[in-house]
Nucleic acid binder design. Structure first.
Length: 283
DNA sequence: AATCTTGTCAACCGCGTCCCA
DNA sequence: ATGGGACGCGGTTGACAAGAT
């Protein structure tokens, strides 16, 4: 690594060339913004020097792309965005940059942080690997359907005028009616293609993925059998948080609306989902 | 009120890929 | 063909804030 700031014994000349690290100051931000406004982005190492920034080009690029760029969207991820992240992650894995290309205004860093802090947290609470098939199935069967329901609810009350998230909602409203639910889905990849994953979620659309431009995929994950129905859970989504409790906790729950099960590995119906409430608050 | 724990997110780091001389 | 610089990506770290004890 090139020089690091705050080193004790450096000559004045070295100090002159010392590269700064850590949080950016307002002055640095201003310098970078003004320089890019006048000269455009790219050639980051040269840019850093010419702009008078004591930063690496790499640091300048990161600061611009993740924070200063004008079209960066701030604030919590919408249910649409969360759902899209889940779907695209199930399709592409940790290809954050690729996923971010489909979420205008969101950065790969933001999506990555979302996944690590919110999604992986749930895996820890379930005591399963976040990259395991089990967890992916849980995401498809519980989380994604609930987000779809949330999207449907919000779209009903949405002002018809375009909004920053209209990229997604427009796709949703234009989507065809999903096929009848299948009782037997033999492969996880089939799940993704069907879009509504576990059947019966009254989704307003097919998978968001199917609405996106075709991009070459990695091979499908290992096959996994799902079939009949044997348990249900109450799902509550509130202010960006999901709480999944056993249906017994919620007398008014309509089990027919949430009927994903599996028999081969019946983990959700007992050990994990009943003993450990799947608390998705903050998601 | 003080301390500890947990969550969030900006930033850094290492590595792989691309491009050009 | 290849070596080096620039760039981009994904993983990780660390500072700070918020919540819990």
């Amino acid at each position: 690594m090139a020089g690091v700031a705050n080193s004790a014994s450096i000559s004045p000349n070295e100090e002159e060339n010392e590269l700064r690290k850590g949080p950016w100051t307002l002055d640095e931000d201003t310098l970078l913004i003004h320089y890019i406004e006048n000269h455009g982005e790219g050639h980051w190492n040269a840019l850093a020097k010419c702009a008078g920034l004591k930063r690496t080009g790499k640091s300048c690029r990161l600061r611009w792309l993740n924070y200063l760029k004008p079209d960066i969207k701030r604030g919590n991820l919408t249910p649409q965005e969360q759902l899209l992240i889940l779907e695209l992650h199930s399709k592409w894995g940790n290809r954050w940059s690729k996923i971010a290309q489909h979420l205008p205004g969101r950065t790969d860093n933001e999506i990555k942080n979302y996944w690590r802090t919110r999604v992986q947290k749930q895996a820890r609470q379930l005591n399963i690997e976040s990259n395991s098939q089990r967890f992916l199935d849980a995401v498809r069967c519980f989380w994604m359907p609930t987000l779809r329901q949330k999207m449907e609810q919000t779209s009903l009350s949405l002002d018809p005028s375009p909004s920053p998230s209209s990229y997604l909602t427009s796709h949703i409203s234009a989507a065809p009616t999903p096929p009848p639910p299948s009782k037997m889905v033999s492969h996880v990849s089939d799940y993704s293609l069907i879009g509504n994953s576990c059947p019966s979620h009254n989704s307003p659309s097919e998978s968001l993925i199917s609405q996106l431009p075709q991009i070459p995929e990695q091979p499908a994950s290992s096959s996994y059998a799902f079939e009949a129905l044997n348990d249900s859970y109450y799902v509550d989504y509130d202010m960006g948080g999901l709480v999944l409790d056993p249906v017994s906790e919620m007398a008014s729950f309509d089990a027919s609306q949430f009927d994903c099960q599996m028999t081969e590995s019946d983990w959700m119906s007992n050990n994990y989902m009943t003993d450990t409430l799947w608390n998705m608050q903050g998601m």
